[in-house]
Write a protein that binds this DNA or RNA. Structure first.
Length: 656
RNA sequence: GCCUGGGUAGCUUAGCGGUAAAGCGCGUCCUUGGUAAGGACGAGAGCCCGGGUUCGAAUCCCGGCCUAGGCUCCA
């Protein structure tokens, strides 16, 4: 750009209502706000900017200079982004408090996050017990309501200030490489290198709390040194903070590891790290899921197969998986009789061999194999987490071998069934489209077609999805279905992937109409993902309150006293004849105590029977939502129960 | 794998150099009960594993295993 253009030019700023205004190049966000209205100017906390119609929004300080045409949103304390700004300031409040107590502490970076903020620090040895004292110091800083002032300093000054802080120096060297000056935020004489934005004063951070302390690599790189990361959160008011903390406490109650123990569903003993042991109650849930998925696989035209866990390592060599896994140490493999054997880390190679075992005509395709395939992966020890991240897992796996012209329809059919499944559980999933990465194999046109096919299917179904650029596996693009756990962490469960790798590497073919050999495409899909992860997600989703069809114990009979044991047995036998999982509580305890136990065990229905019911031939029904009805006709109840189970209703609704 | 916590009865936890505690659960007995905890008694613990320090270790130190939260990874 020539000098004259630079001087004369104005830029166009587009506002959220679609209107546009021209301002001198170099105007700040604050200038524009004042231009719109003095009131707005005074209220401006930050701006959100991005190039017109393009990409992600950046949150910037009011002092940020606009040098190109932009879209701009003014952020005030009424904006959704305000909390993010406030939390950034809270991170500064933390850092100041920390350095008051530990002057030797060195600061690295301290950004806001979705739920709060963190600050990475070093040079101090603190643990969770120290957080309270730091919080008290933070409260003091907030209480004092110091103004935050933005100060521009030269890079030389900044280097001097951070003489003994290599992290800040690295930021100055890299992020601020081309800048003549850099901004600091100063509060109460304490300062931090920072681009902002921030709220006007520390008092605007109404309430802050430190949550936990952990560690993180500098810049997230494994080879770098490990820093102490302190997580915290902040809100405008104590009330908002308390509400958030309450939600966190509720989330902890949903933890599948805790509920799994309470309901005696599963264990992961020390002798089998990452390998789930299903207890009888947990196995009931898994078996119900298996039967459900078998039905869905049949609907989709899959033929069930079974392939072994133990194979020679050479099985995975031609596909390229062996090298990938072996390098990462992710495969369980060992030498036996001078041969290398391994536990399968995935099922596709075995299924491909079943396909390749005979010649197939184009008329036979799609050919689909499903398997509840147990695989083992040597996940890093620090990654293991209950049922959600394990080393031994059983996938509800399936591979469809299709002609290229069948690809799109096959994906669409699968996606329809997947939606139906997640609706059955009332489970919200996030659809992610993962596209071609650097490690991709196969031609550009194939990737393009496959990605388009996945996209078309998603759009045909009207599904919202996120695109994750470059995240796909090396062998093809995929749709990932992510569920959130109680703590808001995302876990991939179901998946639909297009795979060019296997057919090519294993030279899979079908004979076409033209009597020539053609290459099929493989679709790899898992509807639930793995039973382990899915059961874990379900436990948290339902907080252990499973729908009737999944509940390990569906009905519990509570005889009031010994005189009604026989009647209870009679009713129980009748329910068992209908295929229900029933127990009779013959413990020597009061009815109140039995009810308490029934609720603790999250049994959907309790039937209280005593002399009254025995004489009248009725039942007293109580559900886990504490609703009750007396004088219930057993026929009516059983009929309802069958319908509730067979229709897979989510909640007990006899007492609605 | 890395960092920081943690591992005591089936579960949840207290104890933190001097003979190992509580609540729930479990067993026996009393009680025969009516919609979220009736009472009494009792059983139940190589205090994660190995080494060390000490007259003496659940407790302090070193190593390992497992685990929690992050980080990294997730074919």
């Amino acid at each position: 750009m020539s000098r004259s253009e630079q001087e004369s030019a104005e830029i166009t700023v587009r506002l959220p209502d679609g209107s546009e205004m021209n301002v001198p190049r170099g105007s700040t966000v604050g200038d524009v706000a004042y231009e719109i209205g003095p009131g707005l100017g005074d209220d401006t906390v930050a701006g959100r900017v991005r190039p017109p119609d393009d990409g992600d929004w950046d949150l910037v300080a009011p002092e940020h200079e606009l040098l190109e045409d932009v879209e701009l949103e003014i952020v005030t304390d009424q904006s959704d982004e305000y909390l993010q700004v406030l939390r950034h300031t809270a991170a500064h409040v933390f850092a100041q408090a920390l350095q008051r107590l530990y002057p030797e502490a060195r600061l690295a970076i301290g950004p806001p996050t979705d739920e709060g903020f963190y600050y990475d620090v070093t040079g101090v040895d603190i643990d969770e017990e120290d957080l309270e004292a730091i919080e008290a110091e933070m409260a003091d800083v907030i209480e004092a309501d110091h103004d935050l002032e933005r100060v521009e300093r030269t890079r030389e000054e900044a280097f001097e200030i951070y003489e003994d802080n290599r992290f800040k120096r690295e930021i100055l060297d890299e992020e601020a490489a081309g800048e003549e000056t850099v901004s600091f935020y100063v509060q109460d004489g304490w300062q931090d290198l920072c681009q902002g934005p921030h709220v006007a004063s520390t008092g605007d951070v109404g309430a802050a709390k430190l949550l936990n302390i952990s560690s993180a690599y500098w810049r997230g790189e494994e080879d770098n040194e490990s820093l102490t990361r302190v997580y915290g959160t902040a809100f405008r008011s104590e009330d908002d903070l308390e509400e958030y903390l309450e939600r966190r406490r509720e989330a902890e109650k949903r933890d599948h590891r805790k509920i799994g123990r309470e309901m005696d569903l599963f264990s992961v003993p020390d002798h089998s790290p990452g390998c789930v042991h299903y207890h009888p109650n947990g196995m009931v849930i898994r078996r119900e899921l298996e039967e459900y998925i078998r039905g869905k696989n049949e609907e989709l035209g899959y033929d069930e197969v079974w392939t072994p866990e133990l194979n020679k390592a050479e099985l995975w060599k031609p596909t390229g998986h062996y090298d990938a896994f072996k390098e990462e140490g992710e495969m369980f493999a060992w030498e036996q009789n001078d041969e290398e054997y391994g536990l399968k880390p995935m099922n596709c190679a075995n299924h491909a061999h079943i396909y390749g075992d005979e010649r197939h005509s184009y008329r036979e395709l799609p050919l689909r194999y499903s398997e509840f395939g147990t695989v083992y992966r040597n996940e890093q020890s620090g990654e293991l987490s209950g049922m959600l991240r394990v080393r031994g897992l059983t996938q509800d796996d399936g591979h469809a071998f299709v002609r290229p012209d069948q690809l799109e329809d096959e994906i669409l059919q699968t996606l329809k069934v997947i939606q139906d499944i997640y609706e059955t559980f009332g489970l919200e999933v996030l659809y992610k489209l993962e596209t071609k990465g650097d490690n991709a194999i196969g031609g550009e046109d194939k990737w393009e077609n496959a990605t388009q096919a996945l996209k078309n299917a998603l759009e045909a179904e009207g599904l919202d999805y996120e695109i994750e650029e470059g995240e796909a596996a090396f062998y093809g693009p995929k749709i990932g279905l992510d569920a959130r756990d109680a703590l808001g962490r995302e876990w991939t469960i179901g998946t639909v992937q297009v795979d060019f790798n296997i057919p090519e590497r294993l030279e899979l073919v079908y004979v076409g109409e033209d009597n020539e050999e053609h290459r099929p495409v493989t679709i790899h899909r898992a509807l639930l993902g793995s039973f382990e992860r899915f059961v874990g997600v379900l436990i948290e989703h339902f907080e252990g309150n499973f729908p009737l069809w999944l509940a390990p114990e569906q009905v519990r009979l509570l005889p009031v006293a010994e005189h009604s044991y026989d009647y209870a047995d009679e009713i129980a036998a009748r329910l068992e004849a209908e295929g229900f999982r029933v127990s009779v509580d013959t413990g020597d305890r009061t009815v109140g105590r039995k009810i308490r136990a029934g609720h603790d065990d999250r049994v959907p229905y309790m039937l209280i029977v005593g002399e009254d019911e025995m004489e009248a031939g009725t039942l007293s029904v109580r559900d886990r939502e504490e609703r009750e009805a007396r004088d219930v006709d057993p026929d009516v109840f059983v009929e309802h129960l069958v319908a509730e189970r067979d229709e897979k209703r989510l909640e007990p609704d006899f007492l609605d």
